[in-house]
């Protein structure tokens, strides 16, 4: 017999999951803008490459940067994140290295997952981004267990689970909300309602306008907010997290945003209503933040150009790093199957 005490077990488990890498502080307007610009530049660079051929395609979240940066920026280092196939924003806002992410997308050895994930299921455990699943709704099925570990092992962090309006159509969405409510699990459900469910518009697949309306029947508090306004997202996310900490119960935060590009690069978006797309382009979260900073934040055009230049240099360096990274050895085909 080799008994393991609850305290020792908790310590061992905590040390195995507590984020260890450097998580950036995103609390100043300039840092928020830079994070959003980095996400945009990262996704557009990869999209441009895949359009040329020879580079694996990605699912982007262009236009949704305020949602990702707004929520992630108010999480603490103890909190854990589950995301999905549109994960670049959540990962980069949390401090993931764009070079290692690009290496992963290209299938290279220095990718966060040794090239085995590609773009679709990048997890970075050292940053607390765990169990990324590209099965729509997969993150919802796993978040309850991650939150159960947090509570049973006495860890302080909450669990932020990012999913889309498409995932809210999966049965597992309802199973997850119900169990989280019954077991009082500390989960911040973040629905990035981007109007698109792969190639189908949300209005074809649901009655009603709001995913958040589905929280109340399970006894879960919710809020809906403009997901293209990073300050509004931050305020709402802070309030949601306070609610989780005060009540010990989950919260559903719906962020109204829009997927400005197609489902999967390259995508000509021939199925998208041009007027609707134009209306949302006019509400681009990055342009809105820039305008606000220029109007009243004490920023000049020169300041903004400087941020742009820094971001572009980082993406250039990231792509160079990824391209220089070697392919995995074919012997890696049979590693990491079993523990």
């Amino acid at each position: 017999m080799n008994p393991v005490s609850p305290a020792a077990a908790a310590r061992a488990a905590a040390s195995a999951t507590t984020p260890s890498a450097v998580i950036p502080r995103l609390d100043q307007p300039e840092a928020l803008l830079e994070a959003m610009l980095l996400i945009r530049a990262y996704e557009l660079r990869l999209s441009a490459r895949s359009a040329q051929g020879g580079t694996p395609s990605t699912c982007t979240a262009v236009g949704q940067e305020a949602a990702a940066v707004g929520v992630v920026s108010v999480l603490t280092a103890d909190d854990l994140i589950l995301t999905n196939h549109r994960s670049a924003g959540h990962l980069l806002a949390r401090g993931a290295d764009p070079g290692r992410m690009m290496a992963e997308v290209l299938g290279r050895r220095d990718g966060y997952c040794k090239g085995k994930s590609g773009s679709l299921h990048i997890s970075v455990r050292e940053l607390g981004v765990v169990l990324t699943s590209t099965i729509v709704g997969g993150e919802l099925s796993l978040a309850t267990g991650v939150a159960l570990s947090q509570t049973m092992l006495g860890r302080p962090g909450i669990v932020a689970c990012f999913f889309g309006d498409g995932a809210a159509g999966e049965g597992i969405f309802h199973e997850s909300l119900n169990l989280a409510a019954v077991w009082k699990l500390p989960i911040l459900y973040v629905c990035e309602n981007n109007e698109w469910q792969a190639f189908v518009h949300r209005r074809e697949t649901m009655v009603g306008e709001r995913i958040a309306a589905r929280a109340a029947p399970y006894g879960i508090a919710s809020a809906t907010v403009d997901g293209n306004d990073v300050d509004a997202v931050r305020t709402a996310a802070r309030a949601a997290i306070d609610s989780i900490r005060d009540s010990g119960e989950p919260f559903l935060l719906e962020l109204l945003t829009y997927r400005l590009r197609g489902h999967f690069e390259p995508d000509d978006q021939a199925y998208v209503n041009a007027a609707e797309l134009a209306a949302w382009q006019a509400r681009d979260p990055i342009e809105r933040l820039k305008a606000r900073l220029l109007a009243g934040g004490g920023f000049t055009t020169g300041d903004l150009n400087g941020i742009d230049a820094r971001v572009n240099a980082r993406i250039d360096a990231a792509m160079a790093f990824a391209e220089a990274s070697p392919w995995p050895d074919t012997s890696d085909l049979l590693t990491d199957i079993y523990a």
Partner: peptide, 24 residues
């Protein structure tokens, strides 16, 4: 613990918990 009659979330909860320190 008892659970709802919902095999998907029972299994998913076990998978998430197993990855983060429990042995369900």
């Amino acid at each position: 613990r008892n659970t709802p009659l919902a095999e998907g979330i029972i299994a998913g909860t076990a998978v998430g918990a197993a990855a983060t320190g429990l042995r369900p």
